[in-house]
């Protein structure tokens, strides 16, 4: 049976791009990355097992593509074009000011995280992947996912003034 991943893929685009932005921090690069990942996925749709998480499968493809690309760019000595850095912080929306300020703090704190912490935060907290699923996407042990994630969340807590006075 051939699985038609098209509709799922289109539905996933905003989240794929969000992940891509979080990795690349550059709108143009993110678009290229998403497109490349989609093409890989469509070409290899048969390797996706129906019944497993489609989103996690896509995140892994996208991430591997990014890592491959990074490696290649590094060996070719080409610089990232980081000039039109796109902030991941959304600017519109009209909620209460208080909430906006809170989110601005959170978004800034997230933006300031090292990439490895930011992506694990996104995969677990925003994409609801389990630690194990995140570990599979990232190709690292669960313990690494947990320590990165705990570090990221401690920083968020610090940045938003909600330290319980503990932590290390």
């Amino acid at each position: 049976m051939t699985s038609n991943i098209g509709p799922d893929l289109v539905a996933l685009l905003p989240r794929l791009r969000r992940y891509a932005l979080s990795l690349t921090r550059d709108g143009g690069l993110a678009d290229d990355l998403v497109q490349g990942a989609c093409e890989k996925a469509l070409a290899g749709a048969r390797s996706w097992t129906p019944g497993t998480r489609f989103d996690a499968w896509m995140f892994r493809i996208l991430r591997n593509l990014w890592i491959d690309g990074l490696r290649r760019r590094r060996t070719e000595g080409i610089q990232d074009h980081m000039d039109d850095h796109e902030d991941i912080v959304g600017t519109d929306g009209n909620r209460e000011t208080e909430m906006k300020l809170m989110f601005a703090d959170v978004a800034r704190a997230i933006d300031d995280l090292p990439t490895d912490q930011r992506e694990v935060l996104l995969l677990t907290c925003a994409e609801d992947l389990s630690y194990r699923e995140a570990a599979e996407v990232l190709g690292v042990p669960i313990g690494t996912v947990m320590s990165r994630l705990a570090r990221a969340r401690r920083r968020l807590s610090e940045a938003t003034g909600a330290e319980p006075g503990m932590g290390n």
């Binding site: 685009l13 989240r15 709108g27 989110f103 997230i110 907290c125 969340r153 968020l156």
Partner: peptide, 28 residues
Amino acid sequence: AFTRSRILAKRAFEEAVPPVPDALRAAI
């Protein structure tokens, strides 16, 4: 604090889903 940071992060990411450029969507 951990429960809170999870929810904060989730909401922050959710607030910040930028629109997918038309050209990208059309290409896919």
